[in-house]
């Protein structure tokens, strides 16, 4: 059974992709098609579009993503510590987790102060 568990997500994923592809491709066979002149136009409230949507994205978003990465990875590091907290009869992990979280909050305060997290 262990084996099954290990390959399950993988095989499930392959199956889902195949199923999704089937669903997406089937309508090409069974649905009628239209041939209006504006059929392939990008929709924008019925008006012709001005310019493309593929514009430069401001560096701000990138910083945003970096901040997220920092927090997420840090949080992931706490996971093992938290799991074994129960079996360790010591205050050491508590202090460790505590110190870690406090550093994390300091960085949050810093990020807020620097207005990195203002969304526009």
């Amino acid at each position: 059974m262990e084996q099954l568990y290990n390959i399950l997500p993988f095989s499930m994923g392959i199956g889902t992709l195949a199923f999704g592809a089937f669903l997406v491709l089937l309508p090409y066979l069974i649905s009628p098609r239209s041939k209006g002149r504006f059929r392939g136009d990008t929709y924008e409230s019925g008006e012709p579009i001005i310019g493309e949507a593929w514009v430069q994205v401001r560096a701000h978003y990138y910083i945003y993503a970096l901040v997220f990465m920092a927090f997420d990875v840090e949080t992931a590091f706490i996971v093992p510590c938290v799991v074994i907290l129960r079996s360790w009869d010591s205050w050491l992990p508590v202090i460790e987790v505590g110190a870690f979280l406090i550093i994390l909050s300091l960085s949050l305060v810093y990020a807020l102060k620097k207005k990195v997290l203002e969304w526009e």
């Binding site: 669903l23 997406v24 089937l26 309508p27 069974i30 649905s31 392939g40 136009d41 929709y43």
Partner: peptide
């Protein structure tokens, strides 16, 4: 399922 698939240009 029976609806047309439109891939815009």
């Amino acid at each position: 399922l029976g609806k047309e698939m439109i891939t815009p240009k």
